[in-house]
Design a protein around this nucleic acid. Structure first.
Lengths: 117, 117
DNA sequence: GGGACATTTGGTTTATTTACCATATGTCCC
DNA sequence: GGGACATATGGTAAATAAACCAAATGTCCC
């Protein structure tokens, strides 16, 4: 593999990794409806203020969100909204996975005997 | 947030996290062209055999790939190919990010003086 | 059964990530 | 300048992930 390809691969993985945390994914989804300040985001979620700030910093470093300071507040917004268009596909993955696990349960586990007549 | 929403969020983040590692993303991309055995994948990349196997296990656990044993070999394939359709968007994120950094360099760093006449 | 091969699993060490707390920075308004 | 507010940053402990090696498993063929 060429060095440039490797670099691109790492950069792409970095974006996916940034989204690969429940809190950060939630933050990104919140921003789908338009920019929000840190305060709005932090108060909706059960986490320390500084934790939210750090998660936003991770998203920013990955290029997923942009920040803009206005007055006392900092507003974050999605920089490349197409990112969320992907979610239905991710949900398909999740759904498929869950269905398979259900099948596993159904097929492999001993079930109670049917009632005797 | 409801418990079910939280669970879905975690599952989605888990899928993204699985793809958020250069080696695993590379593996997924390799499988875009159809199933491959572990040996084919491992020999192309500079990593221990067992490392590749473990990365594939992560992808499998997340529901991204499926495995099928045939003879001595295990073949992996993409379970939900739409996942890779997302890459152009991710690349946009990366490209945008790099461009901004270039601008930063251009605007903020001292440049050599123009040649004197 | 035994040997060769493909893959997985277990164990260990090291690096990275996370959450929380305390403290710093920057902005507004008096 | 000083106080109140919004956010970021630094430090630290605990949890998680990564790579590598060695050993186990499963399959084929003799």
């Amino acid at each position: 593999m060429k060095k440039s390809e490797k670099g691109l691969l790492e950069a792409k993985a970095n974006v996916l990794k940034a989204l690969g945390h429940p809190t950060r994914l939630w933050l990104a989804e919140q921003l789908a409806g338009g920019e929000k300040c840190v305060c709005e985001l932090a108060e909706q979620i059960d986490a320390d203020f500084s934790t939210v700030s750090k998660h936003l910093a991770v998203l920013k470093q990955a290029g997923v969100v942009a920040d803009q300071k206005r007055g006392k507040q900092v507003y974050y917004s999605l920089k490349v909204p197409c990112i969320l268009k992907y979610m239905p596909c991710i949900e398909t993955v999740v759904r498929t996975q869950i269905e398979e696990q259900v099948h596993l349960l159904r097929d492999d586990l001993p079930r109670p005997l049917p009632p005797r007549r």
